[in-house]
Design a protein around this nucleic acid. Structure first.
Lengths: 153, 153
DNA sequence: CCGGAATAGTTGACGCGTCACCCAACGTTC
DNA sequence: GAACGTTGGGTGACGCGTCAACTATTCCGG
């Protein structure tokens, strides 16, 4: 009754291990650089970018969570830490007393503006400057396919 | 004196956001599945695989850290948790009294063998079954290039 | 209007990863 | 063989993410 599993062949192995290594190193490197030259984590940065994309208007917490594809609980914890550091603030929502608005503080906006150029430069340097435009297209194809499969379950 | 940063163009943006989304979702999905049907985290699994690859011989902690590309401190914390659960054991090293050997316990070996087939199946299902062999080649090309750039600094 | 289901968001506990720091053993040099 | 720097590894504090449980509000059927 033993189902022999279909293992990965040599190319697939190589691609998979390469992917795992790349993703770990890339994330670690970008994180360390952002932390070093702006004092922000990647997660902080994502939150700040999502808020600035909304043009400084208050954003409902739930909406922010959906934008980031984060669980509400994660967002709540993270906002608490960012609020402690003065990067964002929470306001209560008049329409729905259960709700909460999140806004960027001046310090938060400054931090985002200070961090962005170096972060983009790092992404360029480590990723896109090394890829041909065919490789970029291929990457889009792969990520779209995998995401579709994950979503499709 | 303002250096205008070179932003990402539309294709690059799309590739980058797609990559970030894919990597987050893929990791989360694989992690949840492994946790659900084997009670292991991805990190646990990596440790167990590294140890079984060494054929059951004790492995020096530092060597294991190098294999996994983990910091020693991370490995130390993780081994402590795995030891508590009976998956691995530490032995002291006769050659070098500072050193520590790590070995798989019987339970650890069983857990790895039980977890592997479903995990490989998930990787296949979510990734490789959806990709053409050209896409796999392209993925290898991209990961190799990016890793080289990270290493090269 | 009342009572229960759904919704918005928070909290606590716990596993995980990093950083900074520590300690013990080693080995080299004089 | 004593002193010194190095190496192997562990620790504690803290930020992060998840899960489960909780609170407060709103919505809806009767």
């Amino acid at each position: 009754m033993e189902e022999e599993p279909r293992w990965l062949d040599a190319r697939e192995q190589r691609a998979w291990r390469g992917y795992l290594a790349m993703q770990a190193q890339l994330q670690a490197t970008l994180h360390r650089r952002l932390q070093a030259d702006a004092g922000l984590s990647l997660a902080d940065f994502d939150v700040l970018v999502a808020l600035t994309d909304r043009g400084g208007e208050p954003v409902r917490a739930g909406e922010l969570a959906a934008l980031l594809q984060w669980e509400k609980s994660r967002l709540s914890h993270h906002l608490a830490r960012m609020e402690r550091r003065g990067l964002v603030a929470r306001e209560d929502c008049p329409d729905d007393a259960r709700g909460a608005f999140v806004v960027l503080t001046a310090a938060g906006r400054r931090a985002q503006e200070a961090a962005a150029p170096a972060h983009v430069a790092a992404v360029r340097e480590l990723v896109f400057d090394g890829l041909t435009s065919e490789q970029v297209d291929a990457l889009i194809g792969v990520t779209d396919e995998v995401r579709a499969r994950i979503a499709g379950r």
